[in-house]
Amino acid sequence: MEFLAEYGSFLLKVVTLVVAVLILVGGIVSIAARNKKSSDGELVIKKVNEELEDNKDQLEYAVSSEGELKALEKQRKKEDKEKEKKEKKLAKTAPDPAVARKKRVYVIDFDGDIRASDVELMRKEITAILTLAEKNDEVVVRLESGGGMVHSYGFGASQLKRIRDRGIHLTVCVDMVAASGGYMMACLADRIVAAPFAIIGSIGVVAQLPNFSKVLKKYDVDYELFTAGEYKRTVTMFGENTDKAKEKFQADLEETHDLFKHHVKHHRPRVDIEAVATGDIWYGVQAIDHKLIDEVGTSDDYLVAACDNADVYTVRYEFKKTLQEKLGFAVQVGFERAVTRVLTSLQNQMQSKG
């Protein structure tokens, strides 16, 4: 009996502790949910000019002798004085701050998976930039994508169009790949800069799905599909696809391809659309001959050169981590991301000449 009493007392303490923990976690989740309503993320902004200067100073300090460092410090002070004089002179001749301010270049990154998931971040970054950017400014998008879902990349292209509609110069830099949906977005730019071996193009539409109807028949499994509307469902993974259904599905693909071609031709009228809209891809050094891009080069060189005449800022929106992610319980999110990565990897393998 004494053992049972001690066991009961111990069990009661455990239950009490578990209940207390659940109440505490519930309270934290409630607070986190309230906080998320007010703000689900924040902008992270860095000035590229300052980062370049800091890197240069660190390198100079590491490789220069004591005498060289003294000479550099003397030269730097002289340059600072001359810069200060120029700024004062500019302020006198242009008292209006809006006239005096330098051009600004805003840099955002788009790393596209098969679902174009980065569009959610990009739309917030573009919205923020458009509250401040002026027509003399520029937006640079470092874009990497092998394409994916048509509607997702169409929405991504619509976000970039917001920049063009405001009369702000848009440049897209491609270091590795802008194919299919990626090029659908890139072609909206006033200027496209691509690395020599970046993959460009794939102006086409593809759809593929397995069909298990023979397997189901083999094991005497019936598959019933009920629809209202002749074309509510054309081809299916489990039923037997008729010739009429296949023809309709192919017609839908052709219609999407025509829309894609019209989109590219509208934004890059110099392109011979019938010659490039074959689904083929080209390296950057070849793409310039087809007028798919405007310049061969890397995003690094483009931004370093921009720092000579403008203030260059990277703009990135970061979502705050939820309580579940902080506690390590985001299994579903992790699984979804893993699946997306696999599908994106398969998609990117299709966009290769190797």
Rank of each mutant, 00 (worst) to 15 (best):
K77W: 01
P196L: 01
K321P: 08
Q324C: 02
K74T: 15
K321N: 14
V14Y: 04
M122L: 15
S213V: 07
F238W: 02
R337M: 10
D308F: 03
V235D: 04
I45F: 02
G147Y: 01
I203S: 03
G147I: 03
A133Y: 00
K265N: 10
K353I: 12
N211Q: 00
D280S: 14
K135L: 06
P210M: 00
T16E: 11
C173E: 06
R104H: 15
G279T: 08
I281R: 10
L292A: 02
Y106A: 07
T242S: 15
N348S: 13
T314E: 07
L52R: 09
D243A: 14
I203M: 07
M350L: 15
V285T: 12
K135S: 11
L343Y: 07
Q332T: 12
D311H: 06
E144W: 08
D118H: 12
F335T: 10
V206K: 12
A33V: 09
D113S: 10
E84C: 03
V331M: 11
R123H: 08
K13D: 08
D258T: 14
R316I: 03
L323G: 01
D243E: 13
V193N: 07
A245E: 14
R101M: 08
A277H: 06
K218L: 12
S38M: 12
D258P: 03
Y313I: 00
Q159T: 15
M184C: 04
G8E: 07
K47M: 10
L216C: 04
R270Y: 12
D300P: 02
G112W: 02
I163W: 00
K265S: 12
A189Y: 02
G27H: 06
K86H: 02
F155S: 13
F319C: 10
K13Q: 06
K37C: 04
I203V: 12
L225P: 00
N35K: 13
R101D: 07
Q332N: 09
Q208I: 01
V304L: 07
V172G: 00
P97E: 04
Y61N: 15
K70Q: 14
Y223L: 01
I192D: 08
L59S: 11
E120M: 10
V221C: 01
R162D: 13
